[in-house]
Structures are given as structure tokens and as C-alpha cells.
């Protein structure tokens, strides 16, 4: 037990160890690497949206009652809690809602050439309706909130029905300037 401290907590129990203690086997431990796979059915709304991407189209869904054009589309509206109404094809342009310049990969490993990532509000959809994607053909100095962008698609033969059928969003002509 750690020594008594004035004020609360009155002491600080727990034994600090370092990664080195584990690597050098100074403490006892056991190890496990789970092997598990999943497949997810995309459901009604996402199947149609993803198949739209395969055809080079961004699809939204309207909620007439809330006067909203929803992207990503869903079959029910989370606010009025009624079914949504119609499919609608939107442009493949939009504006940058927010972004980051990432030097981390998905395992928090450091990367040298940063990833430009952010949220795109799609033109023709309700405000702030869009999705996360990469940005390209722009520098980290050029990227800014409000920048007009356009999707860069994979060649039709390479599309597989995935969000990555869009390679990234590039500046719309004249959209690269701050």
C-alpha cells in the first residue's frame, strides 16, 4: 500500500509497470490473438446507396415531412420517426464541412505523408448532409472548411460496391483558393 497522503484520495494504490517489463518478461502475463471474421448485410438503404456508388452516382433519400434530403440515406427518419419517401440522385460535388491532416494510421502508427480526411456536405442535400472521405489533388496548405470539392471516381471496371469506389474528393474548378 502506498504511503498516506494529506487529502483525498488518501493513498494511491496500484503498481506501475512499463512495456519493457512485459517485453523482458519481468512480470507474468498471458497472450492471445483473436481470430474472428464478420460479414455485414448492408440493409435496404445502404445496399442501394453503395450500388449507386458502383454506378458513379451519389443517392439520397427524402423526408417530405421534415423537408430534408438525407445523405447517407436511410429508410426511416430519426427525427419524425416515419418512413422516408423517395430516392434522389445528387451531384458528386459538395463542400468541406470539416477536415483533418492525419499523421496517424488506424493503428496509431506514424505516417510521413499525411492523409487529408474530412466530411463533405453533398450539393443538393440538406445542410451538413454528407459523409467522411479522403481529399486529394490539393495540398495541406490549400485545404479549408467551405472549399468546393468534386468526387474522383475509380474506373467503372474497378468499382466493387464500396465507399472507396470514390477515390477521394478534389478541388472543384476554382475551388482550391482560400
Amino acid at each position: 500500500m502506498a504511503k498516506k497522503i494529506e487529502g483525498s484520495p488518501g493513498y494511491a494504490p496500484g503498481t506501475r509497470v512499463s512495456t519493457k517489463d512485459i517485453v523482458q518478461k519481468k512480470i507474468s502475463y498471458s497472450w492471445w490473438e483473436p481470430e474472428v471474421q464478420y460479414s455485414w448485410s448492408m440493409g435496404q438503404a445502404m445496399s442501394k446507396f453503395i450500388m449507386g456508388l458502383k454506378d458513379g452516382k451519389i443517392l439520397g433519400r427524402t423526408c417530405i415531412k421534415c423537408d430534408r434530403v438525407l445523405v447517407p440515406p436511410r429508410m426511416f427518419c430519426e427525427y419524425c420517426y416515419g418512413p422516408t419517401d423517395n430516392w434522389i440522385e445528387l451531384k458528386d460535388t459538395g463542400s468541406i464541412e470539416t477536415y483533418s491532416i492525419s499523421y496517424l494510421d488506424s493503428d496509431a502508427r506514424r505516417i510521413k505523408d499525411p492523409i487529408l480526411i474530412g466530411v463533405i456536405s453533398i450539393d443538393g442535400a440538406s445542410p451538413q448532409h454528407g459523409f467522411m472521405h479522403y481529399f486529394g489533388e490539393m495540398t495541406k496548405e490549400e485545404i479549408h472548411i467551405g472549399m468546393k470539392v468534386k468526387a474522383v471516381w475509380k474506373a467503372p471496371k474497378d468499382r466493387e460496391g464500396a465507399i472507396t469506389d470514390i477515390k477521394y474528393f478534389k478541388p472543384l474548378k476554382g475551388g482550391g483558393k482560400k
Binding site: M46, I50, S102, S106, D107, A108, F131, M132, I163, T164
Partner: peptide, 14 residues
């Protein structure tokens, strides 16, 4: 989200 986000190999810090 497994359909919209994970194929982009995101990091939570993003």
C-alpha cells in the same frame, strides 16, 4: 460504421 467508415481505415483521433 462497417460500411461507410471502416473501408477508409480511420483512426479515432480523426
Amino acid at each position: 460504421d462497417p460500411i461507410l467508415d471502416r473501408p477508409l481505415a480511420p483512426n479515432l483521433v480523426w
